[in-house]
Design a protein around this nucleic acid. Structure first.
Lengths: 131, 131
DNA sequence: GATAGCAGTATCCCAAAGGATATCGGTATC
DNA sequence: GATACCGATATCCTTTGGGATACTGCTATC
């Protein structure tokens, strides 16, 4: 199904472009994926400060903003416990696993591309020094 | 193969993250995909000014920079004809087609995500007005 | 009663991405 | 001989993403 090649209309292309951009937006930026990875690796709920420690160099302002975005996109849940002072726990959702295929393809293509470019620059260097 | 769930080491995660980021970088930004799409739809070589016209609102500085990036990543070729003044033609490469799967997944996920979020906000609205 | 931890927020600052506008040397057109 | 087109480049400007630092109200610990 995915390999069929129809002539794409401009309409369809624009719709596709919007969808692709949506995806790029929600996983883009410096911290979205590192946060998700940290939460996955924690394999359980993680509190705000602990998350900050796991990510080492993130500032609280940025962490706070990114967590809000991730929550809006339903990649994580935020649970507030009525202690004093409050305890807040973050956790990845099952929905975040739907990113699996996307991330798989991005990773595969990225690895392939890196080796390809490396080979290309090596070839250029050798050609240059052979002259 | 792609569905096997092994406990990911931090090492492997970091490598994967780098690869994913590589991919996001080469197709990210405001104009990379629109330029590729325009060249694909043109179905043949396109000159600089013509490309600028097709993209409507891109400035020559940005177009020039993006084309250089795309050429470095081997998504397009740049051919200079020795006329006076010079004629320059841009064309998509076969290699750019290797993005197919990545773009397919990004599009599918993006569409699905949009309808999901729409449903979620509708549900919230109805719940709010029912109170 | 000073100190440290919690979950953030507020303010200021910097660098990168991208846009606006002008310009280049050359030629074809009016 | 003025004008417009070609493929860009140069300069200046704004917006955005993100970092640095300080601070809040509250509590448990020394």
């Amino acid at each position: 199904m995915r390999s069929e090649q129809v002539e794409p209309t401009e309409q369809a292309c624009n719709q596709a472009l919007v969808a692709v951009r949506d995806s790029l937006y929600v996983i883009g930026g410096k911290w979205k994926l590192p946060i998700i990875i940290a939460l996955v690796q924690a394999n359980g709920p993680v509190r705000f400060r602990e998350l900050q420690r796991l990510l080492e160099t993130i500032t609280p302002k940025v962490l706070s903003k990114e967590l809000k975005d991730l929550e809006l996109n339903e990649f994580i849940t935020r649970t507030v416990y009525d202690t004093t002072p409050v305890t807040v726990e973050y956790q990845v959702t099952d929905y975040s696993k739907t990113l699996g295929n996307v991330l798989f393809e991005l990773r595969e293509w990225g690895m392939q591309h890196r080796t390809r470019l490396k080979a290309a620059t090596r070839a250029r260097r050798e050609k240059a020094s052979a002259q």
